[in-house]
Amino acid sequence: MTSPGRMMRGLIICGVTLAVGAAFIVLNFDAMFSLPPPVARLAATAPPPPPPAAAGVTTITILAGAATQGNPDYDPDDAQVPIGNKVVWVNADTAPHTATSGTGPEDASSGSLFDTSIINGGDKSAEIELKDVKVGDVIPYYCFVHPYMVSQLTIVEAGAAGSTNQSPIEAAITIPPGASIQGNKPYDPAEFEIKKGNTFLVINTDTAPHTVTSGTGSDDPNSGTAFDTGIMMEGDRIEVSTVNLNVGDYDYYCVVHPYMKGKFKVTE
């Protein structure tokens, strides 16, 4: 016969165990959910973020997974290269690639205009000089290792692409590869200072699209009122001017991945 005393002791044993477990859960709830999977971090560290290219160089990223047929390969696919600019290819994939002028291995003049030769995963090709080309030329190129990866360069007038407004670029935020994975570094640098009136450049080097939108989150009533870069695909570079921002701290976040947050201070 179950006596009341024994039943009480049984309840206490269950109660105490549950209380200890509940305390652990409450205290470590977020800590248990903070580390991205190791495989994601591996991929994040493998391709070093490309250094901000000098004014006269156009960067083209070879995307992760480009080796799989059907997956997007070169980004931007139809790069607008201002005349006189040099071109550099950044290989964000794990597999080796090349950028060889011509339409394919069967093209007789393949590699005549330029050939980056093998670019290993995570490396950057040498800066390619485009000789005797004129505005409006369209130069097809492909990857010698994966001939189904085809793309093209279009030569445009000098100064067409690149910065439009005059105020000097003082700082640059890069969104590192793998930023979309919770727990990874969302914005690099996470905080910075900028003089009122200057401009800061946002470069998205991650494979996923991101935004830099003022405010602390989607439930913040005036989110996006101060500034909003809108959806930035991979490799996009957008300048945000602080002309009409007043002095003080600004929080920003990514509309697509609201857990990505950063802040900057506008100084006198």
């Binding site: 800590a31 248990m32 959910f33 903070s34 580390l35 991205p36 999977p37 495989v39 994601a40 994975i181 919770q182 727990g183």
Partner: peptide, 12 residues
């Protein structure tokens, strides 16, 4: 569960 699930929670 491989690329995105965060934290020791998944391994636990």
């Amino acid at each position: 569960s491989i690329l995105r699930a965060p934290g020791p929670a998944a391994e636990m």
